[in-house]
Design a protein around this nucleic acid. Structure first.
Lengths: 341, 341
DNA sequence: TAGAGTTACGAAAACGGTTAAGTAAATAAA
DNA sequence: TTTATTTACTTAACCGTTTTCGTAACTCTA
């Protein structure tokens, strides 16, 4: 429901022009102090609240950004939203949220709409399905500032806020090796996502550095579908030459890995050690507690939005040079303990 | 960055008036088929995308709703967002997200802004601090459709989507009693939240029905501050006459309860049984697995948004009669097992 | 005391659409 | 043939702001 009291109401009531009211409210120098006060007082008294879209139309900006996420039921994204929303509130921007649910076509449709002027900038983490980037490039070419975080699109030359995914993959793998694992499987979420590939590269490098032969069959492509993932993991663990170490590259594979082990009667960490890229607050109280590589999610959200707002404030700002890599941290817990308790 | 190609561009290019273009794009009857086709073709060719705010200004609606949440790092809200976003996308509405971080003043400021016409309706779950409701009432009185979900504001006569909180509290308590608990503590998040009070009422009723005397000291007011909560819980459990059963009325108290028990050397469920209102996907793999009362979060989000959109589509729709109570479900797991393993 | 500069305001265009009302031409009805 | 109706547009007002430009009235200056 639209507000009924506008700048016109004030103007009429005070016998001044709407221009005067507008300028008075903005405290412009060319309005007399007495008039300013009259305007401000009445505005307050009548609870006048300016229509943001009218002003935005004229000023050609919306003071709104879009946040495009694959999903929200993931601790990383939940925390990132916090960081983003916090800075947005501080900068007096508004945040439109869109979930792609890992669907490429949805992502396309959502981005297309942004060419309408609905938002001044976009913050996004791409879909695991996204392998072509024309839709993003097109938006970017139209002049829209875009900042990627976490799941970035490498081919687009703009700011990207990531964690050290290669190092994370390396660290995770090295840790499992240090714990005595000989055969390490990697649960991957996508073949196209750079985040996924980099973690895998780190994994491969660590294997190589430790003279462990990499076997393609140790990379398990898990689906977005929880049940399918569960089956893939169970299949992996049922195999004769099952792995003795598992790296879950995304948080959501954790529960399924644990459940599959339980079902198969495999003990973590005795039979198989598990490490997960995760921001789960329940990591310390899992059975067993979960060794994690955690990303500073809140900080990443904050960094991404901060960079974006900088770009929105001065057109001279060059997003291309603003990529940031934030280190992840390894927290060792029970799921990779070397002696079963 | 605003889109540069507008209805004017099309009009000029085709030598017709902007009205013709506008109507042609809307497939109005008073435009010739030939013209319509020319317009549509050019619009497509030039990738014309209408500015939503311009049209919205004229039509006096934004096709946007606000989603006001205390936080997002809670499985319930995460799942609810999914449900909400799904219906919004379906109805071609956009969703502005706002987090109050349990701050009453933030909630006030956020709602105040909505009187500007920024959104057509609001979906909200109030702060744990919110005890006066003038700010909400004022917005509602201005004609804004509001639908509450989960954390509702009782005193405002509009649609409320909740779970059966009283029954949930009762069920949780009865379950603990059935498991042999004699002294049950309730971790409460607020004294003003109806959700909190109802769960407590259910708890009291169950105690009463089982002839267990209620003691006010068994209600522990936990703070939003994680550390403070942790200390409160630890204090509770360190007490000479500590409880043998704990009901966490919100998910986020779970981790702290588990950690406090660990620190104090108390075994769950042997020394103390724990049940939590929670949507944690990791509930089954906690140590021990967690008995939960879970709310159908996704469905609640969906129900709330569906009701709101109905109200937005016809003004005759009466939100007051649309409250829905959806049953929660008790899932028994290890944390309330009667025999320690 | 004429000219220049300042102060305080208003008129009007603009942002990008929608829509009610008007109109010329073509067609149908009388 | 005249009138009524339909068809296919256009004009212009409007949504609620912002902002450029213009202009009276007043204050200085020389």
């Amino acid at each position: 429901m639209y507000n009924n009291i506008t700048i016109k109401t004030l103007a009429k009531e005070l016998n001044v022009s709407i221009a005067t009211v507008s300028k008075a409210l903005k405290d412009r120098h060319d309005i007399g102090v007495a008039t300013k006060q009259r305007v401000v007082e009445l505005a307050h008294k009548l609870n006048y609240i300016p229509n943001p879209y009218a002003g935005g139309l004229r000023k050609r900006k919306s003071k709104t950004i879009a946040l495009v996420l694959p999903e929200v039921a993931d601790s990383f994204f939940s925390l990132a939203i916090n960081g983003i929303e916090a800075t947005a509130q501080e900068k007096e921007y508004h945040v439109l949220i869109y979930l792609t649910h890992e669907s490429f076509t949805k992502e396309q449709a959502i981005l297309k709409d942004f060419q309408s002027g609905r938002v001044d900038g976009v913050l996004m983490s791409i879909t695991s399905e996204t392998s072509t980037h024309n839709h993003i490039q097109e938006l970017y070419d139209s002049g829209m500032p875009i900042v990627f975080f976490d799941r970035v699109c490498e081919s687009i030359d703009t700011a990207k806020i990531t964690t050290d995914d290669f190092e994370g993959g390396y660290k995770a793998t090295q840790h499992l090796i240090d714990c005595g694992c000989k055969k390490i499987a990697l649960l991957s979420i996508s073949t196209s996502l750079s985040i996924s590939n980099k973690r895998m590269e780190g994994y491969k490098k660590a294997l190589d550095d430790n003279h462990i032969k990499f076997s393609p069959s140790d990379i398990v492509q898990c689906s977005n579908d929880a049940e399918k993932s569960y089956n893939s993991i169970k299949k992996l663990l049922s195999h004769r030459s099952r792995p003795d170490g598992i790296i879950a590259t995304v948080e959501k594979f954790t529960t399924n890995t644990y459940l599959a082990c339980k079902e198969l009667g495999l003990f973590i960490p005795g039979d198989v050690k598990v490490i997960s890229f995760s921001n789960l607050p329940t990591a310390p109280i899992l059975n067993p507690s979960l060794t994690t590589i955690t990303q500073p999610a809140f900080e990443m959200g904050k960094a991404a939005s901060t960079v974006l707002f900088k770009a929105l404030n001065k057109s001279s700002f060059n997003l291309k040079q603003e990529s940031i890599v934030i280190p992840s941290v390894l927290t060792v817990r029970g799921s990779t303990a070397t002696q079963t308790k």
